[in-house]
Amino acid sequence: MKLEVDGVGKLFQRGKKEIQAVKNVSLTVSEGEFVSIIGHSGSGKSTLLNLISGQLLPTTGKILWNGESIVKKRDYEAAFLRNTLIGHIPQGMGLLSNLTVFDNLQLPFYLSKREGNPTERAYELLRRLGIENLKDSYPNSLSGGEMRRVSIARALINKPKILLADEPTSDLDPENTGIIIRLFQEISREGTGVLMVTHDLSTIGAADRVYQMSHGELVLKCKENITYFHDKEDAG
């Protein structure tokens, strides 16, 4: 399973003003890779993730999932792809407040027609993420770190090929940040690709590849140029 982004650009129209949120971005992410994109707020990171997941259509360029263009797919086809191949951890907490943790976790399973029962997989993820005791809790009673772990567990319910994480450690303390990043490392070692966008420099040491995004443009960075951490064990 390989994600290819080739020369992708996105232009937004705001009244008479045109905003080039993403400019000629190219990158690849394969299964088992941990790729990080670092950049300030407003650099176009989240827009790039939404393009990759098919929620936005690019103005220029191609986005290929295993050689198939997501741009040419109809909305319901792109949604199905997003539901089955991608695990999306949206910015912010992203949990539905009227559902319990357990129900939030299983939600992606029920968004597409599929056979089976997600209960067993849900219990497995609760154990793995260390949130078994929160099964019947509601999001408004959880801490930031707990909510983020629920969000990650939910993204993994359908066994995706690639995980897209949008600012997964924002608003978290260093301890919880470390827990999340170690999780991503484990997930990538198990064969799931991880593409994380963040402005938190302390997390990028864990990634296999780091890009920097600024004013919509993407540039590959050497990890040695990152000043905070030199190896994965120090992340978090």
Binding site: S53, Q55, D75, Y76, A78, A79, F80, L81, R82, N83, T84, I86, H88, P90, G94, L95, L96, L107, P108, L111, S112, R154
Partner: peptide, 15 residues
Amino acid sequence: REFAILRALGASGKK
């Protein structure tokens, strides 16, 4: 917000 989360998780506009 609720609809945006559902879309991000793979719900189509039709759904």
